[in-house]
Design a protein around this nucleic acid. Structure first.
Lengths: 155, 155
DNA sequence: AAATATAAGACTATTTTAACCATATATTGT
DNA sequence: ACAATATATGGTTAAAATAGTCTTATATTT
């Protein structure tokens, strides 16, 4: 099924929030409360993001997380890889990495007739996932009217 | 996880095979044997494709399946919808259909801050899935050399 | 030393996926 | 009419992935 996992969703919500804090340290507790998700899950997600070098973590009291690079340099593809442990693969035998080498372990079909077109699709998907970044998840500037009513300009 | 289900894979393999037979009736048994997958699964997949008007089925002896429209008019999006019963949704609350109306049942987060960017991503995904058709899964013409050696030109 | 915060693994329940089995229905050919 | 062939459809089961909770360890600040 072509669906993001909840963990990926939580990762995006977390990164969006951290990015919005613009360099300030943010704790897992704060993120969990803001999003409305249990602390444990958010902590696990942030840990995975840290492992992959997307976030940086400061342990101890007053510790927390911040982004290791700017939002525009963190792609959806990076986030998925960090959370799932490997890049997205539309089918088992086609990855964005071994597109050229033929060490495909898929011996399912006597002769696989969809590998080539699937490779093309996988490539398109990768291009899309790489082009989307955390910047795309950030709100546009908030405009204030003269009467101080806050109007948020959405895309 | 962003992965096609096996059923979708089988559907694509089946449609590719039926398309290659260019209008001839093809039985589920023939497809199952060609692909190397159990007859029952292929029959179920073909049934689902028929329900959605992608394939046409002729019952009874000498019956079988054929495409209801040309390969270039059957998109990957159509196939996924047929197999899974509804269009692909990257997240629960964003579908390609209710992009404009706001009857989103997702009350998971106190205030969801990723719905708008997710809608944009869903739209991109839909465009991609709609642009890819069974024609993209068909082999290019087979060229014969003078010595009758068959060379298949791959993409 | 106490409080705060991340690190990391174990465990359980639910959902989805995958495959198989059984039976019903329709059509053809003898 | 009847046997053979082929699709239609629902039920059942096993395996895998997902989602969430719990527990313990480690690091830092006050």
């Amino acid at each position: 099924m072509l669906r993001f996992t909840k963990k990926t969703e939580y990762a995006l919500l977390s990164l969006q929030y951290i990015a919005s804090k613009d360099g300030m340290l943010v704790s897992a507790k704060e993120i969990a409360e803001t999003i409305g998700i249990s602390f444990e899950i958010i902590a696990k997600v942030l840990h995975l993001l840290g492992r992959s070098g997307i976030t940086q973590s400061i342990q101890g009291a007053q510790g927390g997380y911040l982004l290791q690079r700017s939002p525009s340099m963190i792609s959806l593809s990076d986030v998925i890889s960090a959370i799932e442990g490997k890049p997205s693969q539309l089918v088992e035998c086609v990855s964005s990495e071994d597109i050229d080498d033929q060490n495909c372990s898929c011996n399912v079909y006597s002769n696989c007739t969809i590998k080539d077109p699937m490779t093309v699709i996988q490539k398109k998907m990768d291009e899309m996932l790489t082009s989307i970044t955390i910047l795309d998840f950030m709100h546009l500037p908030v405009y204030h009217t003269i009467s101080e009513t806050i109007i948020t300009k959405e895309q």
